[in-house]
């Protein structure tokens, strides 16, 4: 492994301020660039000087002890933090060269391109079909009924759910099992055809078998989407992520190629955390 910063983002290594290893197997197409991001809940600072480059079409895992700000950071990327009145942010979050927090940026348009899957599966109180078809229809992605059916099938297939639900598309989404519900939520997110999918501890409420299914799914989905996932499970990060960022007390301690991070962590704190000394 060489320790040279990728050329596409020459400024990122010094600003992150830490050794950075290029993952040769992953893409180096920049998707989201974050510079000096600070965030406060009222008077409490939750994120401090976050600098990170997130790359297209691979899986980036955010790990760290609970309360370290990794979920908060994730929600900055599609401005879900806007829903909390006390939150104030400063700094740059850039996607495709456009500032996400700029006044002229429409957060609805942003979320249309940055999908999200939540910790607890939250299917709508509608049928399985409607859960998937609803958003594309509202976004005018499909016009004809046939297109819609096709899109739903494609999304459900991508989410690995089609075979299980194809005979009961009209049943309520809540009738599925927890793991199926979560895959339904993933299908719902990919049906909108976003660039990025944020996953906020998507498997923490699931059993081990469902977790394995979702991990496989993430691996397949990264061919088409940029996936950023928060996890408290280090093994999961090691299994699915190309890059891993370690958060601690609202700061990024280390951001690196997953393999490097887990074999030779650069920072003492990272080493303590991944060897299970705290967290």
């Amino acid at each position: 492994m060489n320790s040279q910063a990728p050329e596409a983002t020459p400024q990122h290594a010094p600003s992150v301020g830490q050794p950075y290893t290029r993952n040769d197997e992953a893409s180096h197409d920049l998707s989201i660039r974050v510079r000096d991001l600070n965030l406060w809940y009222g008077k409490n600072q939750a994120l401090t000087d976050i600098n990170i480059d997130l790359f297209r079409k691979n899986v980036t895992a955010l790990i760290g002890p609970s309360g370290c700000g990794k979920s908060t950071f994730l929600r900055c990327l599609n401005r879900m933090n806007d829903l909390i009145p006390s939150v104030r942010t400063e700094g740059l979050v850039e996607m495709d060269g456009q500032d996400v927090n700029a006044p002229k940026m429409d957060e609805v348009a942003l979320r249309r391109r940055v999908g999200m899957v939540f910790q607890k599966p939250n299917p709508f109180p509608k049928s399985i079909f409607e859960n998937v078809a609803y958003a594309p229809r509202m976004h005018d992605l499909v016009s004809r009924k046939a297109d819609q059916d096709e899109l739903v099938e494609k999304a459900l297939r991508s989410a690995g759910l089609w075979n299980e639900v194809k005979d009961k598309l009209q049943e309520p989404g809540t009738s599925l099992s927890g793991g199926q519900q979560q895959r339904l939520c993933i299908a719902r997110a990919i049906a909108v055809q976003p660039d990025v999918i944020l996953m906020d501890e998507p498997t923490s409420a699931l059993d081990p078998i469902s977790t394995a299914t979702i991990e496989d799914l993430m691996d397949k989905l990264k061919k088409d989407f940029t996936i950023i996932t928060v996890t408290h499970n280090m093994q999961q990060a090691a299994r699915v992520a190309d890059y891993t960022a370690f958060f601690h007390l609202g700061e990024i301690i280390e951001y690196n190629d997953t393999k490097v991070m887990f074999s030779t962590p650069a920072k003492k704190k990272t080493e303590d955390y991944i060897s299970g000394r705290y967290g």
Partner: peptide, 15 residues
């Protein structure tokens, strides 16, 4: 997928 500007354009009516 579409760029932000294109999407924002489509969104006007919905907003």
């Amino acid at each position: 997928s579409d760029s932000f500007d294109q999407i924002s354009q489509q969104l006007k009516r919905r907003h």
